[in-house]
Simulated scan of single mutants.
Amino acid sequence: MKWEGNRQSDNVEDVREGGGSTGRGISIGGRGLGVGTIVIALLGSWMFGINPMTLLNILGGVEGGAEGGVSTEVERPAPRVTANDTMTQFVRTVLADTEDVWREQFARAGGTYKDPKLTLFRGSVPTACGQGQSAMGPFYCPGDQKVYIDLGFYEVMKTRMGAPGDFAQAYVIAHEVGHHVQNLMGISGKVDAMRGRISEAKQNALSVRLELQADCFAGVWAHHAQAARQILEQGDVEEALNAASQIGDDTLQRKSQGTVVPESFTHGSSAQRVTWFKRGLQTGAIAQCNTFEAKQL
Rank of each mutant, 00 (worst) to 15 (best):
G248I: 01
E176P: 05
G165T: 00
F167P: 04
G130M: 00
R80I: 14
R279D: 02
E13R: 14
E239W: 12
C289Y: 00
A201V: 13
R103M: 09
W221C: 01
R108L: 11
H179V: 05
E99L: 02
T119D: 02
L43G: 12
E99R: 04
V147W: 05
N290G: 08
T119W: 05
E239F: 14
P77W: 01
G69L: 03
V261M: 11
A228G: 06
Q8S: 11
N84V: 12
G111M: 11
N57F: 00
E67F: 15
V191N: 00
G219R: 08
I198E: 02
R197C: 02
R122T: 10
G19N: 09
A243V: 03
D166M: 11
R24V: 12
I26D: 13
M185Q: 15
Q213A: 08
E75D: 12
T37M: 06
A227Y: 04
G32H: 14
A222Q: 00
I173T: 09
R108G: 09
V177R: 02
R16T: 15
K278P: 04
R108M: 10
P116W: 01
T22V: 09
G5T: 05
Y154K: 04
A170E: 06
D249P: 05
F153S: 02
A128W: 04
T72Y: 11
V81H: 11
K255I: 11
S124N: 05
L55A: 08
A193R: 09
Q89G: 14
K278A: 10
V172T: 11
L43V: 13
A109G: 07
T291P: 03
R254S: 15
M87S: 11
Q145S: 07
P77T: 05
Q226D: 13
S207W: 05
V62Y: 04
G130A: 05
E211L: 07
Q253L: 08
W102S: 02
S9Y: 00
E239I: 13
Q272R: 07
F121I: 01
G165M: 06
V39Q: 12
E233R: 09
R31V: 10
L210N: 04
F277R: 01
Q89I: 05
V94G: 04
L55W: 01
P52V: 13
L210Y: 01
G268Y: 06
S199Q: 08
K190C: 07
I187Q: 01
N11W: 15
G137P: 07
T275E: 15
W276M: 04
S9M: 09
L56Y: 00
F292G: 10
A228W: 10
P52T: 13
I38P: 02
V74P: 00
D192L: 08
V62Q: 07
I149T: 03
C216M: 13
G29D: 12
V172E: 06
L241Y: 08
F167K: 05
C289H: 03
R229N: 03
T82Y: 08
E233M: 10
R103N: 09
E263F: 08
G143E: 10
V15G: 01
I58L: 14
L118F: 01
F292R: 10
G34F: 01
I247K: 03
G25R: 14
R24A: 13
M47R: 15
S21E: 14
S45E: 13
V125E: 03
D250N: 12
